[in-house]
Design a protein around this nucleic acid. Structure first.
Lengths: 143, 143
DNA sequence: CTACGAGCTAGAGGCGGGTCTAGATCAAGC
DNA sequence: GCTTGATCTAGACCCGCCTCTAGCTCGTAG
């Protein structure tokens, strides 16, 4: 959950790794996979220099990944962006669909949470009063 | 999100698959991996018959998995249950820790959602008024 | 000038979590 | 008895997503 501070200068790969939470390996991998919105600049010596826009985009990537967007879809989005203006409706559809999935996911997690909470409550009570029998004992009936 | 109806008779693997949402392959795989709380009964002919307790447990497994518990931890929990009464405090710790992770996850997802919502809003507005320039255009400045 | 860490490429490797295959067996209906 | 579909085992395979290795270069500090 690292906050990604906005940056005005170009950054080396290590700095970008620090700011985005991605490893340098992952950054190079993402680039190979075509997940970036344009070629990363290089120094004379061949080192990558990430622009603020690159870093900004990577920040979004991290959020989309964290919320379960597969790399393939991220790649598709990056392609749309790379194609330039004109396909915004499709980008919107993609983001919007993902947003719905995130909401479904949150609902599912909340349901899981409450089911787990019940189990936790049962265990907590039994443990508290030392009467820890009759729950998930494969040789007994479930409580 | 299939509701798992409570059952009073033993079931074959296909029926369990239907009820839990796990594939028959996954059910056998889980068993091999020691994720069940006891040996599954077999018919004379060697087919598995899952007791209501088994099905119940699998239902919990599904929820724990859905909410991100790794198989290794599920296995650990199953081991504790298999050992029988006496280790309830440890089971409780395990469940409780997982519950906290689920809550963190929900919070993280909510944060992602709101960040995505901002992007969606920006795109929606631009698309609605046809002025879809200046956003994530790698050749321009970001909006 | 030298040393040393950070970065480079291409490609292999690994891990989690299943999924699928082959070839055999079981069980129910015709 | 025969067919058909579900199940069995052991083990190979796959996919997503990185992570690591080898062997080299860059660039900064002493």
């Amino acid at each position: 959950m690292a906050m990604i501070e906005t940056v005005t200068e170009s950054l080396g790969i290590g700095e970008v790794a620090d700011r985005t939470g991605l490893s340098v390996h992952a950054l190079r991998f993402y680039e190979r996979e075509g997940l970036l919105i344009g070629p990363v600049h290089r120094t004379a010596g061949g080192r990558r220099r990430y622009s603020p826009t690159d870093v900004d985009w990577l920040g979004i990537c991290v959020r989309l990944r964290e919320s379960g967007m597969p790399l393939a879809e991220l790649k598709r989005f990056a392609e749309l962006v790379r194609q330039g203006p004109g396909n915004e409706p499709e980008r919107l559809r993609l983001l919007d669909a993902h947003q719905h999935r995130v909401e479904d996911q949150i609902r599912a997690l909340e349901e899981c949470r409450s089911i787990i909470a019940v189990k936790v409550g049962v265990y907590a009570e039994h443990v508290a009063r030392g009467t820890a029998a009759g729950l998930w004992d494969p040789t007994a009936t479930e409580g």
